[in-house]
Nucleic acid binder design. Sequence first.
DNA 1: TATCCGATGTCAGTCACTGTCGTCAACTAG
DNA 2: CTAGTTGACGACAGTGACTGACATCGGATA
Lengths: 191, 191
Amino acid sequence: MGRWEPNARGRLEEAALELYSERGFEQTTVAQIAERAGLTERTYFRHFADKREVLFGFPGQLHAGITEAVASAPADASALGAVEAALTAMGAVLQERREKARKRQAVIDENPELQERELIKMATMAALLTETLRARGIADSAAALAAETGIAVFKVAFERWIQGPDRLDLPTMIREALEELQSLAADYGTR
Amino acid sequence: MGRWEPNARGRLEEAALELYSERGFEQTTVAQIAERAGLTERTYFRHFADKREVLFGFPGQLHAGITEAVASAPADASALGAVEAALTAMGAVLQERREKARKRQAVIDENPELQERELIKMATMAALLTETLRARGIADSAAALAAETGIAVFKVAFERWIQGPDRLDLPTMIREALEELQSLAADYGTR
DNA sequence: TATCCGATGTCAGTCACTGTCGTCAACTAG
DNA sequence: CTAGTTGACGACAGTGACTGACATCGGATA
């Protein structure tokens, strides 16, 4: 056994989510999180770049899923078809941890600073998605547009899912939102 | 004449943009900005909520333009048609201050913290746009989707505009990006 | 066994941001 | 004209996020 308890990072994540839920993000200090995790403030900052990042560790895991899903989409799929594959793959991952996701989202919804961080994570995914689409041979402009639009669709579907009843299926809701967008676009044409 | 030089806020904005451009955002302290503007650090924080906000004052002016543009769109316009009106109105405002916009964007592009703030400003506009569309009688889900998608389109068009040659017209580029999205959506249908 | 390494603790320091209070010109009521 | 009020700012002290430098020690390695 090591000199310290294992999984320091995980303990910090857990302690932070608890404290942020209990007393709010602003009312929690990093020192308190570290203390609850049995560590020091300095060690917190060795694991997370700042006070917010502790809530955003696992989106990193989604990145691998995105590239993978797009890569394994059928070769003849359209740009938005490939996007659909990526988004539903992400959705499937989230579908597992619904309760944690909901608790986390409740904290984020209460604090603008956290919302900023969430947005930039989404933007990062959009950039990654753009890159992956380009790798499929999709033209630059179409790739960027499809990716940005896809993320917008994901946001809408995620919000509906997290706020709706338990039985909802996120991947399904993503597909529905995409189809909805399609019909909006068709209407735009006939304006 | 007053006890102090007029337009303290404007002087702070100018000083900040200069310093951020010269030595970078992180390497600039609020005290330095205040000093260049002939004020104190405390006064800076009376005008701006934090170190970043000094770059994001004028997007607030865009908000009025959005609601106005959507309101004055033809009654029979589609959801994305109304969005087009809002986006091109914003585009027209930015078209005026191209040089300042470019300088500002260069600073933002260098710093993730500033990108976060920019993203949340965009999200705020999306929310406002959603609200305005609902006021036109567009269904909730369609309004949110149209607004989010519209902002995504705006981002793409803005980037092309700010990075492209001087002669480009932002409102035109917004319309082009919207049409491009439309064709992407049509392709999605025939996948 | 000697040495190195990696994760953590300790401590001092900077800077973003806030609360409080004092100052003084301009404005307003009488 | 005088007294009180207000608005914009300066001065000062304090908290907490975040960083750099260095010490510690169990475990892996030569």
